[in-house]
Every structure is written in structure tokens, then in C-alpha cells.
Design a protein around this nucleic acid. Sequence first.
DNA 1: CTGGGTTCTGAACAGTGTTTAGTTTGTGGG
DNA 2: CCCACAAACTAAACACTGTTCAGAACCCAG
Lengths: 209, 209
Amino acid sequence: MGTAERRERERELVRTAIIEAARDILSENGLDGLSMRAIADRIEYSPATIYLYFKDKDELVHEVVMEAFERMNEYIRREVVAAGETADAAEQYGAMGRAYARFALENTAYFRVMFELPPVPHMECPEPEETGGLETVVATVQRAVAAGLIESKDARRTAIIGWGLVHGLTSLYLTGRLTDVVATNEEFMSLIEEAMLLQSTGYRVGARA
Amino acid sequence: MGTAERRERERELVRTAIIEAARDILSENGLDGLSMRAIADRIEYSPATIYLYFKDKDELVHEVVMEAFERMNEYIRREVVAAGETADAAEQYGAMGRAYARFALENTAYFRVMFELPPVPHMECPEPEETGGLETVVATVQRAVAAGLIESKDARRTAIIGWGLVHGLTSLYLTGRLTDVVATNEEFMSLIEEAMLLQSTGYRVGARA
DNA sequence: CTGGGTTCTGAACAGTGTTTAGTTTGTGGG
DNA sequence: CCCACAAACTAAACACTGTTCAGAACCCAG
């Protein structure tokens, strides 16, 4: 009798319903609007029920964040294949950076929660999704290095510096620190483009493409 | 009779006491530990009293953040004059970036609050302190450009890109995203150094110093 | 010393995350 | 069929949060 399996399936259904509700509330009302009672209301359960599926609010949010990272990775992957099947590795690297920034612009609430949260004290996951995207970047950098487009002794360090570059500019822009320099999203994207171009070619005289 | 002035002074005294208490709690217990009641306890007043000096918790925190920006600016200023009276503009620029990162390492709670907060919807201040530091950076970049050490069509854009670079790397490091690449603070500082060096010289073949 | 204005507080309200005791529900075995 | 047991669910409470408001305490001028 497969009732146990059905129970298991139903359980998983409720679990994902909770996560979806949390994700939707997060997108619509921001992190402040994301309360256990709001989630409970949306899925028409009691708040206490959530604690039968997640030990904490932190655990629930962590799950949502993990999902967000997956989405972002897929977003970037899709973006880079869309606009660069024939592009060289350096161009693909640039496309990744632009996609990262654009994802942040399109999912600001997501993006904030992904990085504004505690320094992840309890991490068991062997970084399958979280840094999975980074590995792709590293590989791209390696191809660019092999093609002589970028010089780097350590492709991973180079990828991380690039990550820091676009992540930092994006954070500053989203928190309103750049308002008196870059006003619109278009201006911001062009700033990102310039910054990424810089990493490849530098500011040295005559080095610019 | 100067009782009005004395009253005013006493009032200002309580006000700064509140801010100091908030700052201390923030440093010791982080943003989560910063509650109105905790502040009231520390200054031995009732929670309601705080609302006679600040309309909001947001307004109070905003004040603390403004102070934090001033402190950071002064920290950087001191750092750059300390280790670079004879240094050229490019070296001073690098010192600024390192100081920024070191300040973040030494005041993690501060740093988080400074940038994790809402996109500052109510900003009347004509950026005297907040971007006051940025102007110094811009001036340094301009001197470096004039000396032929850095190429840049727009010194402000260049400064902002540098800001984004070190800010992003710092944020990622503080939120634990770089743990499997850079383990210690020393490694992190060397990453910052490499990244800033990159902005001046680029990854182009033969462009490295 | 009395009136008025400032300063302060106790108590409450609405909201939060979380726990627990207790109820409902559904299924498997006698 | 029905009972019992386990799983799912919830109402209510607890301790906390930011915030407000009526009233007490205080201080100083007239």
C-alpha cells in the first residue's frame, strides 16, 4: 500500500507551498513584510504548522535564498548562451557580469536577502549551487586566459575579483549610494560594462581596446 | 538668564548619550541586539523618552550611520597620510582602498549597518559627509591621472569603480562568501591589494608592474 | 507658592518569532 | 466495523519588538 509514499508527497507539497509563499511575499512586500503569519495566511494554514516543516524562520529563509542562487545561476547561464554562442571567452565573461547586474535590478528584494543575511553560520551544503555559478565563471576565465585575452596567474582569483567588482557596484547602486552619479538603470548598466572592460584591459595608457 | 541655553545643552547631552549607547550596543551585540529598550536600559531612561529626541528608530539609526561614515572617512584620511606623505597619488589611492577594507574588518557591525539599510528614502543632507570621502578619492585619482599613473577620462567614474571593487570584495568576504578561497584577514587584504593594483595596470600582457 | 511648560514614565497596543497543550484527522490492525 | 494510534494541525500563550498616550514629576517665572 503506497499510502506512505503519498503522505510523503503531500508533505513535500506543503513544504514547497510554504517556500513559494515566502518567495512571493518577499518579492511583493520585501523582507520586512515576510512574517510567519503572513506566510501562514497565504497558504491558509496556522503559523505553528510552518514549524512542522522548518525548524526556524532562518532555515526557511535559507532555503529561499538557496533557491534564489539557483535561479540567478540559471539566469546568467541562459543569458550568456543567448548572447554569445559565437562570442569569445572574454565576451562571455562580460556577459556574465552584465547578467549578474541585470538579475539584481530585476529582483532587488531577492538580491538583498541573498547577501544581507547572517554570515551563514550553519553551512552543511558542499557548495553545489551557491558557488556552482562561480565555477562556471572560473572556467570562462581560464578559456579567456588560454586564448590570450586575459592575463591571470590564478583564474579563480581573477573571477572572484570580477565578482567583487560587479557585486560591489550593484550593491552600492541598489542602496542608493550612486544616485548622484548614475541616475538610471541604463546608466548603471553602462557603468558595469565599463568596469568589466577595465578588468580585461586596464587603465594603462594605450591598453584600451 | 541663561537657563534656556543650559536646557538646550542638557538636551543635547541626552541626545548624544542615546546615540552613543546605540553605537556601543551595535558594536557589541550587532544589529539584532539594538532595540529601543536595550538603549533605554543602558542610559537608564524609559524607552518612551527616546521618542522625545528621535521621531523614529530609523531616524536614530540614520544618525548613527552618518556618524559611522564620518568615522570611516577620518580613518581613511588618517591612514593615507600616515603611510604616504611621500607616496605618489597612485599609491595613496591604493592606501585608501586598503584602509576602507581594514575599517570594515575592524568594525564589521558598523559596516553592515552602513550599507544594509533601506535605500535611504529621506535624504535631505547635501552629501557633506556621506560622499565627502568620495570627493577625496576623486581628487587623488585626478592627481594620479595628471601624473600619468592612471588613465581615465572621468576621474569620478574611475573612483566609483574602485569603490565598488573594494566594497564588493569586502561585502562578500564579511558575509562569508569567500571562505573557501580566502581564509584569513591577511589573505583577504592581499586580495584587496591585488585587485586595486589591477585597476591601475590591468591584466593586459606585460602591463603588470 | 502657584501656574505652566518641559521632561519623563508606566502601561498599553499591535506586531513579531516561537512553543506547547490539545484537538482533529486519517489510516492500519483486530 | 470500530478502535487505537500516529500524524497533522491549531488556539492560545509567552517573550519580545517598535510605538503611543495619559498622567506624574520636575523646574522655573511671575
